[in-house]
């Protein structure tokens, strides 16, 4: 049975951009371990000769004509949905 250590949960939280309280870390140690133990039953399943089923519609490389069209979604309106804007652009925090 998989058991998540405190460090592993903290690492996952970091990768997921989440800050957890001590209480949450403890809670997720248990819950994530439970979930992982449950799904580990797949380990022993024989899948020889199969290819992964990443999708089910069997559509491949759907294309359309490259032409200018008017859509309901307007860039100016989309930008206004962001928390901060300036001169018609989305304003984000400094990256580097």
């Amino acid at each position: 049975m998989s058991k998540f250590t405190r460090e592993e949960v903290l690492k996952l939280a970091e990768l997921s951009r989440l800050t957890l309280t001590d209480e949450e870390v403890e809670q997720y140690q248990k819950e994530l371990s439970d979930i992982l133990s449950y799904v580990e039953q797949l380990e022993s399943v024989d899948v020889s000769g199969l290819k992964p089923a990443y999708q089910v519609s069997n559509l491949h490389t759907v294309t359309r004509e490259d032409k200018i069209q008017t859509y309901q979604a307007q860039p100016a309106v989309m930008v206004k949905r962001a928390p901060k804007q300036e001169d018609g652009y989305i304003k984000v925090g400094r990256m580097i």
Partner: peptide, 28 residues
């Protein structure tokens, strides 16, 4: 949060084949 962390775990390097790829094979 729980599901994001599980998802992040099964997609992370070193676990991808064991969890995510295996699951898609069983799905097939």
């Amino acid at each position: 949060k729980r599901r994001i962390m599980i998802g992040t775990h099964v997609l992370s390097s070193g676990y991808y084949d064991a969890y995510y790829k295996k699951a898609q094979l069983v799905r097939a």
